[in-house]
């Protein structure tokens, strides 16, 4: 997966911006987070034999301008409003020490997530060191999110600054890192570990 360099990302902060069509969307294969890995017996019993985490047909594209990284995610499946759980997407980036994506990181190897959900206006930064072990993550400059739906498809554009220190996952021009995704379908009561996820890390190369 490639993050293209552009002169200025400002024109791409809107989901419907014309520039996104030329940004090169790439498909992301997804599968349900395994039932056996759900952290409590109750959840495993409740969801046994029930469909969840179906492939939402996620496609993503990303750009940067040397200061700011912007990602656009498109996927199918828009839940009605007023239900118990929101539609949501999380973008995972390794902070350090090669964390396992499927375990949501581990002690000493955290993952930073950028999470958007349809009932909250702001982008959240979360740091996880394992399943069920996530906390509020560091706030970063230029964090923003905007979402649009045509009733069938979500278009979500999220951004953060380049760089990375402390618990901020590094995103540096001209360097490679890894990226992962999770999508929750609120209408199917998906929340927590009941989700579609991108199986393993995908290499992400940022143009110099």
């Amino acid at each position: 997966m490639r993050t293209r360099r552009v002169n200025d990302v400002a024109s791409l902060l809107e989901p419907g911006a014309a520039g996104w069509d030329a940004a090169g969307f790439e498909p992301v294969a997804m599968m349900p987070a395994p039932l056996a890995m759900q952290p409590t017996e109750y959840i495993r019993v409740k969801w046994e034999g029930r469909e969840y985490g179906s492939d939402p047909g996620l496609k993503v594209a990303s750009v940067h301008d040397g200061k700011r990284w912007v990602l656009c995610a498109r996927w199918s499946g828009v839940s009605p409003s007023g239900i118990d759980f929101p539609d949501a997407i999380a973008v995972a980036l390794p902070v350090r020490n090669d964390p396992p994506l499927i375990l949501m990181g581990m002690d000493g190897a955290p993952i930073q997530y950028l999470r958007w959900q349809s009932n909250k206006p702001a982008l959240r930064s979360i740091v996880a060191t394992g399943i069920g072990h996530s906390e509020n993550g560091p706030k970063m400059a230029a964090m923003s999110v905007k979402a649009h739906t045509n009733g069938e498809q979500w278009d979500v554009v999220m951004s953060r600054s380049l760089g990375g220190e402390g618990e901020v996952a590094p995103l540096l021009a001209g360097q490679k890192t890894k990226i992962g995704f999770a999508v929750w379908r609120g209408a199917n009561e998906e929340r927590g570990g009941i989700k579609a996820f991108s199986i393993d890390w995908i290499e992400l190369a940022l143009d110099a």
Partner: peptide, 10 residues
């Protein structure tokens, strides 16, 4: 407690 055991967040 069933609630405690069900919570994935501890």
């Amino acid at each position: 407690p069933a609630c405690l055991e069900a919570c994935p967040r501890k």
